[in-house]
Amino acid sequence: MQWLHAVPWDLLLIQTINGIVTGMILALVASGLTLIFGIMDVVNFAHGEFLMLGAYIAVLTIVATHNFWLALIIASLGTGLIGALVYVTTLRPLLGRDPLTTILATFGVSLVLQNYALWQFGPVARKIPEPFSGSITLFHLDYSLYRLMIAGLSAAIIGGFWLFLKFGTWGIWIRATTQDRIMAQAMGIPVPWVLAGVFAIGSAMAGASGVLFGPLVGVDHAMGFDWILRAFIVVVVGGMGSLGGSVLAAIFISLLEAYSSLWVSPAQAGIISFVVLILTLLFRPTGLFVATPK
């Protein structure tokens, strides 16, 4: 039992909360990404830029209205709309072709959006004020209530989306299209509209995560980059196209990193996610959190 005394319990609890909070933000980013891949087979390299656009739309809305919650709604709708436009103009003509063409197209869209933001908003980082302040004391830290709220809100958005997929008409159409696009079309489901809708919803989720995360960082043209790489890892580990898998993988990886950083530098702990990615690709390429295909 000697080892029990060696465990830094205070840090363990702090890192558990850190892992869950970071995991929920990551899950929100990754669920949009996995949704788009699961239904359209499109690896969306522009997903981080939708996160950034969401944050910028929120900045503009807050300047005009001083209302964070309104900004969250408008930014989500706005990025959803932009996502649909990008899909119709850029991706729709490429569907069914070599997957490399859609990867290159989304990479191009990513560069265009990033440079557009740099040109339009300039390089100076903008600020999204937190909707409320306050903190709870957690051992040696004052833990911001807003961070806890992000986790809760991310869970609520993902939960709401799950209910929508389960019970909504469009949700049923989306699931049917995921299972068999041709059969869904034969059954009268408007597949082109479903695909546009899916891209819009995925983009809107990225936009919402940009708004929620905005108060913790400066809003600038490159803010999506750090998240998108980790979101891709989560999507692969969780099983490409699996919403539940992505959520579990996001929390799993974030907790692993958080616990590892108790004993090694957090920078070294970041390597853990890459190790998990490689092991997943080697031994369970379908993902850790989806049933093994029969």
Partner: peptide, 11 residues
């Protein structure tokens, strides 16, 4: 370029 610094700051 670390966006979420919380794991670091907590230490």
């Amino acid at each position: 370029g670390t966006a979420d610094m919380t794991p670091f700051l907590s230490k």
